[in-house]
């Protein structure tokens, strides 16, 4: 019975069942508030009715944090998925996909009207890779050492454990689909080359 609601700053007091997960990052409050201030519509949550349990109307089952960045003249104006996460009980239901689709819809036309949506996924995270593939994303490039602790210098030094795939999905504004490409897995870049 998932519903989509706007995320509010004080929701942070109620996201432990999601954020206690070792794979979900906990940022400092100002990081979240910055997203809410700059991209208020791109930060939303999925909720489940609790029928009065713990005096809550609903519990938060997942959330999406997104932003826009890049220059249009360089064909880099896009929506970026910063975090999408779902509580274990509500996984394997397509909730994360639903949150991604919602973000895509918000990115098309209107105030933002971006060229594509992108995200980073660990090379070894095959589950997430498959999910995004299913949603129409493809690998644009492989970012060497993206999750590493040191700044890599050799773009041919591949390491599945710390490399990330930069995955993209072109949106209707990119009529010629210039922002995506085939065989992106074979295009290697360093983290400093992906800044917008």
């Amino acid at each position: 019975m998932s519903s989509i609601r706007p995320f509010q700053m004080d929701d942070l007091f109620s996201v432990n069942p999601i954020n206690i997960d070792p794979l979900t990052e906990n940022f400092n409050p100002s990081f979240y508030s910055q997203y809410l201030i700059e991209w208020p519509t791109f930060f939303f949550k999925s909720t489940e009715e609790t029928h009065g349990l713990f005096d809550q109307l609903y519990e938060i089952s997942g959330y999406m944090m997104g932003k826009t960045e890049g220059r249009l003249d360089k064909k880099e104006w896009h929506t970026h998925i910063t975090a999408v996460t779902v509580m274990p009980t509500y996984r394997r239901l397509g909730l994360a996909q639903g949150l991604c689709v919602q973000l895509e819809k918000m990115s098309v036309g209107g105030v933002y009207d971006t060229l594509f949506v992108d995200l980073f996924v660990k090379v070894t995270n095959s589950l997430a890779y498959k999910m995004y593939k299913g949603l129409g994303y493809s690998v644009y490039r492989r970012v060497i050492g993206y999750y590493g602790r040191t700044v890599p210098e050799d773009r041919n030094n591949l390491d599945d454990e710390i490399d990330a795939f930069d995955m993209r999905k072109a949106l209707p504004r990119d009529i010629k689909r210039e922002t995506v490409r085939d065989n992106g897995e074979k295009v290697y870049v360093l983290p400093n080359e992906i800044e917008f």
Binding site: M9, P29, S33, I37
Partner: peptide, 25 residues
Amino acid sequence: SENVSMVLQGMENQVYTKLEGFFNF
């Protein structure tokens, strides 16, 4: 201090849909 700048920035940017949440937080 993060919260102070959150509220003031929220007011400055007129993000009314989120301001009440900022005040609560």
